[in-house]
Design a protein around this nucleic acid. Structure first.
Length: 793
RNA sequence: GGGCAAUUAGCUCAGCUGGCUAGAGCGUUUCCUUGACGUGGAAGAGGUCACAGGUUCGAGUCCUGUAUUGCCCACCA
C-alpha cells in the first residue's frame, strides 16, 4: 500500500516551494563538482529588474536543463544570474509613476531622477527573482549581479578607457534616430518601422514641383536634388533656383545625386540634411549646409519663423494649409503609403536629428568577432544563425554608444572648460582626475549615458570578473537566449568579449524563437492571446510548464504553448507520481539497489529500454535537442515503464529492478521536471540524498537481447489472454493483422523482384529487406496458426 | 527589393547524412466505475508528406521552379 503521505494525485503546489527551499538550504546551486572535470558555465541573460516574467523568459528552462544536466555529470557548474536596469525601458516606466504624482523627470533633475529610478528598480527586483525561483531555476543566487552594480560599472569604464586609448572612440556630429519622448538618440536596430498612409504634398519650388510628406521641414532645405541622368532637369544642375516661400523668397542650389529616383514623384527632391538620413548623406557628398528646423523637444526652431515653437504635427498641418492658400501646392496624394520609424520601447515616432554623439569604431572589433565565428570558436545552434551573425557583422557601421536618457551608466568624461587649449579637450576618469587636470572649476561633466547594449555586451566577462569566477569559468559554455537579440546583444558580446579578454565570451550560442499561442500565432496584448507562464504553473505545476516549453519546440523557430499542452504534461507528472506510488508499494523493504538481478525476460526488456533511453537522452541533450530528449524520457516512463513493465510486474515482480527503473527515470527526467522528481526521490526508501546533486545515469546493466525480444512477444500473448473472452473481435483483429502483414510482404517482394534494386542498392539494404521478408513471413504463419486455434474455440 | 525559415493526420509539431509498412501529443470514435494513476486503461478512425518537374534501383528526405505563410534586413523624398 502506498504510504499515507503520497496522495492519489500529485499536487505541485504542496511540494514546490518546500523543495526549492531544500535545494537552497543544501547550497545545491553553488558550484561544486569534480575539479578535474571541465567546468560548465552559463550567464543568464538578465531580465528587466522592473518587469515580470513572460513566456520568453520562461524559456530560460533551457539554461536550467543544461545546468542541471551538467551538474549531474559532476562538472563544476555555475549558472550566474543577473538582472538588468533596462535603461530606457525603466525610464519610461518610472516616468509614468512620476506622472501619477503630477511630476516629470525635469522636476527631479538628472541626479535625483537617477537615484529614485535606481531605488525603484532595487525595490522591484524581488518580483522577477521570485518568479525565476518559482520556475525552478537553479542559478547561484548568491552571485546575483545587477547591471548597475558599482563593480560592473567600473569594468565598463575600464573597457571604455581601453577603447579610447586604442583610438576606437570618437565624438562626432551625425544624424541619429532621435526620440522626442525619451529625449535621446537610438541605434538603428532599436527602431521599428510601421507602414502608414500619409498625404504626399506636391509643392511648387520655383520652376519645379516636388513631392514630400514633410512640408514642415522645408525651412531646413539647403538644396534641391535630381538624378544626374534625368533629361528633364539637365539644364538646372549646378544652377541656383529662386522660389517664393512662406517666409519670403529663398534660393536653393540644384545638385545631381544618384540617390534620387527619377521614377518617384516628379524626380525632384528637396534636401534637408538636418532631418533625413539620406539627405544627411547627400549633404556630406555635396558639402551642404545643415539647418536644424526641429529641436530636441520635437518643436520647430527659430529658423522656422512664425512656425517656431509648434510641434512637428501642428507645423505640418499649418504649413500645408498656408502653402495651399499661397497657391504653392500643385496637388496632394492622400493615399501615400510609406513606413515610419518608431522607437521600439516607447512607441514614439522617431525624428532624425543631428546631434553630437560618442561613436565606437567597429572595424577592428567586428573583424575579431568575424574571425572567431568563422573558426567556430563560437558555435551556433541552429547552425543557420552563424551566417546571419556574419552577415550582420560584415555590414556593421560605427556604433553610437551615447544616449541622452537619464537612467543609465554615465559616460565618464570631463570636458576642458578652462579655455586653456594646451590641456586635453576631455579626459576619461573620475571627478578627482578632472580636478587634477583642469582645476576645481575648470571642467564640465558629460551628461550622456552609455547605450545599455554597450554595457550589456560586456556582461559575460564583467559578471565573472566581479564574482572572482573569471579564471575558472570564462569562456562560458553556453549562451542561450531568444533569437530577437542575436544582433542587438549576442554578436556585440562576441566583439567586446574578444576585444577585452582575448577570448570569446561563450563557446556555444543556442537561440530559441518566440513562444507562440496554440495556433502558432505570436502572442500579443492586442490579440489577447498572451499566456502568463506563472498562471500556468499555478494551475498545472512548474514541471508541466517546463516540459511544455521544451518538448515539441524546435530551436530557432517559435514553438506554441497552450493550456491544453501544459495540461497534458501535468497529466504526465501525475503519471510519474503514480508509477512512484506503485513502485513504492512494492519496494518498501528495499534499502539498496546497487545489485540487480535480471530475473526474467521482462527485466531484460526493461533494462534494455533503460539503456537505450540513457544513451539517447544523453546524446540529445549534448546536441541541444531538448525536445527529443524530453520526448524520449516521456515515452520511457509512460510507454515502457508504466504501460509494459509495471503491467507485467503485476503478475511477477522483481522489486529491485522496479526500484532501479524508477531511480533511473527520475534522474533522466530531473533536468526537465525538477520538482516532481525530487519530491519522489525524497520518498525512496533506498535513497537519502537530494536528486539535484545526484549523478546522471550511466548504462551499466547488460541485458540479453533475445530475452528482451521474448518479452515483446509475451506482452502480446498476455494482452491476448486478457481479452480472450472476446473471441470474435480477436478473430477480426487477427485477420486484419494478417492482411496488413501480407500487404507489407508484397511491398518487400516487389522491391526484391526489382532487378535494379538488387543490383544497385547497397548490400546491407538488400539483406535487410530479405531478413524483413523472412520475419514477416514467419509472423504471418504464426498469426495464421493462432487464428486457426482461436477459431476452434 | 535582399535573405532565412516553414508548408507532413482536425490542431501543434517530430521525422538527423535518401531505404517509411510516414510518427508523437492534443482532439476525435468505441469499450472499460478491477486495489499506481479516469490527470487513467484498451482498441480504432484519420495523411496521393503544398504543387509541378528532375536526379536515383528507391524521394517526406536531394536539386530546380511555382504558390502560400512567417521572420529578419534594407529602402521608401
Amino acid at each position: 500500500m502506498p504510504k499515507p503521505e503520497l496522495p492519489k494525485s500529485y499536487n505541485p503546489a504542496e511540494y514546490e516551494s518546500g523543495i526549492y527551499a531544500m535545494w537552497e538550504k543544501n547550497n545545491a546551486f553553488s558550484p561544486a563538482g569534480d575539479k578535474s572535470k571541465e567546468p560548465f558555465s552559463v550567464i543568464m541573460p538578465p531580465p528587466n529588474a522592473n518587469g515580470s516574467l513572460h513566456a520568453g523568459h520562461a524559456m530560460y528552462v533551457v539554461d536550467d536543463i543544461a545546468t542541471r544536466y551538467n551538474r549531474m555529470l559532476g562538472r563544476p557548474t555555475l549558472w550566474l544570474p543577473g538582472v538588468d536596469h533596462a535603461g530606457i525601458e525603466t525610464q519610461v516606466v518610472f516616468e509614468r509613476e512620476l506622472a501619477k504624482q503630477d511630476k516629470t523627470r525635469f522636476d527631479l533633475g538628472k541626479d535625483e531622477f537617477y537615484k529614485q529610478a535606481l531605488q525603484f528598480t532595487t525595490d522591484n527586483k524581488h518580483t522577477v527573482l521570485e518568479q525565476m525561483r518559482s520556475l525552478g531555476f537553479s542559478a547561484d543566487w548568491q552571485k546575483l549581479k545587477f547591471t548597475l552594480d558599482q563593480d560592473i560599472i567600473e569594468i565598463v569604464y575600464d573597457t571604455f578607457k581601453k577603447l579610447n586609448d586604442d583610438g576606437l572612440i570618437y565624438r562626432g556630429n551625425r544624424i541619429v534616430n532621435w526620440c522626442p519622448h525619451c529625449h535621446s538618440g537610438f541605434a538603428d536596430i532599436e527602431i521599428k518601422y510601421r507602414t502608414q498612409i500619409d498625404p504626399l504634398y506636391y509643392i511648387k519650388y520655383g520652376p519645379f514641383v516636388l513631392a514630400t510628406v514633410r512640408p514642415e521641414t522645408k525651412f531646413g532645405d539647403t538644396a534641391i536634388a535630381v538624378h544626374p541622368k534625368d533629361e528633364r532637369y539637365q539644364d538646372y544642375i549646378g544652377q541656383e533656383i529662386e522660389s517664393e516661400g512662406l517666409l519670403g523668397k529663398f534660393k536653393l542650389k540644384v545638385i545631381a545625386d544618384d540617390f534620387v529616383d527619377p521614377e518617384f514623384g516628379t524626380g525632384v527632391v528637396k534636401v534637408t540634411p538636418a532631418h533625413d538620413p539620406n539627405d544627411w548623406e547627400m549633404g556630406l557628398r555635396h558639402n551642404l549646409e545643415v539647418k536644424q528646423v526641429i529641436g530636441t523637444d520635437g518643436r520647430l526652431t527659430a529658423i522656422a519663423g512664425k512656425y517656431s515653437g509648434m510641434s512637428v504635427d501642428e507645423a505640418r498641418t499649418q504649413v500645408a494649409q498656408d502653402l495651399e492658400q499661397a497657391g504653392l501646392i500643385d496637388h496632394i496624394n492622400m493615399n501615400y503609403e510609406h513606413s515610419i520609424g518608431y522607437h521600439d520601447r516607447c512607441g514614439t515616432q522617431i525624428e532624425p536629428l543631428v546631434i553630437e554623439q560618442w561613436w565606437l569604431k567597429v572595424d577592428k572589433l567586428k573583424k575579431l568577432a568575424i574571425d572567431a565565428i568563422d573558426k567556430n570558436e563560437v558555435v551556433f545552434y541552429p547552425a543557420r544563425f552563424k551566417s546571419q551573425a556574419l552577415n550582420w557583422l560584415e555590414g556593421l557601421r560605427d556604433w553610437n554608444i551615447s544616449r541622452q536618457n537619464w537612467f543609465g551608466i554615465a559616460i565618464p568624461v570631463y570636458y576642458n572648460a578652462t579655455g586653456d587649449k594646451s590641456k586635453p579637450e576631455y579626459i576619461i576618469g573620475e571627478e578627482k582626475d578632472a580636478i587634477e587636470v583642469y582645476g576645481k572649476a575648470g571642467y564640465e561633466k558629460e551628461t550622456d549615458t552609455f547605450d545599455t547594449w554597450f554595457s550589456s555586451s560586456q556582461w559575460p566577462f564583467a559578471t565573472l570578473q566581479s564574482t572572482g569566477d573569471f579564471d575558472q569559468y570564462y569562456p562560458t559554455s553556453l549562451m542561450a537566449t531568444m533569437r530577437d537579440i542575436l544582433y542587438l546583444w549576442v554578436t556585440r558580446m562576441i566583439m567586446l568579449g574578444i576585444y577585452k579578454t582575448g577570448e570569446v565570451p561563450f563557446k556555444t550560442v543556442y537561440l530559441w524563437g518566440s513562444v507562440n499561442d496554440a495556433e502558432g500565432k505570436k502572442m500579443s496584448k492586442s490579440k489577447g492571446n498572451v499566456l502568463d507562464p506563472l498562471e500556468l504553473t499555478q494551475e498545472f505545476g512548474t514541471d508541466a510548464l517546463r516540459l511544455a516549453l521544451v518538448i515539441g519546440i524546435t530551436p530557432g523557430t517559435g514553438g506554441s504553448l497552450s493550456q491544453e499542452k501544459v495540461q497534458g504534461y501535468r497529466n504526465f507528472c501525475n503519471k510519474l507520481w503514480n508509477v512512484a506510488r506503485y513502485t513504492l508499494s512494492k519496494t518498501e523493504s528495499i534499502s539498496d539497489i546497487s545489485e540487480i538481478l535480471l530475473e526474467n525476460p521482462a527485466d531484460h526488456w526493461m533494462s534494455s529500454k533503460l539503456n537505450t533511453a540513457i544513451t539517447k537522452i544523453t546524446q540529445s541533450i549534448e546536441r541541444y535537442n531538448y525536445s527529443s530528449a524530453g520526448q524520449s524520457a516521456y515515452s520511457l516512463l509512460w510507454d515502457d515503464l508504466a504501460d509494459q513493465y509495471i503491467e507485467y510486474s503485476k503478475t511477477s515482480t522483481n522489486p529491485t529492478m522496479l526500484a532501479y527503473s524508477l531511480d533511473t527515470v527520475l534522474r533522466l527526467l530531473h533536468p526537465f521536471a525538477p520538482f516532481v522528481t525530487e519530491a519522489i526521490w525524497q520518498q525512496l526508501p533506498w535513497r537519502d540524498t537530494i536528486l539535484i546533486s545526484e549523478q546522471w545515469p550511466n548504462v551499466y546493466l547488460e541485458p540479453d537481447g533475445t530475452q528482451a525480444k521474448k518479452f515483446e512477444k509475451e506482452i502480446i500473448s498476455i494482452l491476448a489472454e486478457k481479452q480472450s473472452n472476446i473471441d470474435e473481435t480477436k478473430i477480426v483483429k487477427l485477420k486484419k493483422e494478417i492482411a496488413t502483414k501480407q500487404n507489407f510482404e508484397s511491398i518487400i517482394l516487389k522491391k526484391l523482384n526489382n532487378d535494379n534494386f538488387v543490383a544497385n542498392a547497397p548490400k546491407e539494404v538488400v539483406d535487410q529487406q530479405k531478413d524483413l521478408l523472412k520475419s514477416t513471413q514467419k509472423e504471418i504463419a504464426e498469426l495464421k496458426d493462432e487464428l486457426a486455434k482461436t477459431a476452434q474455440h
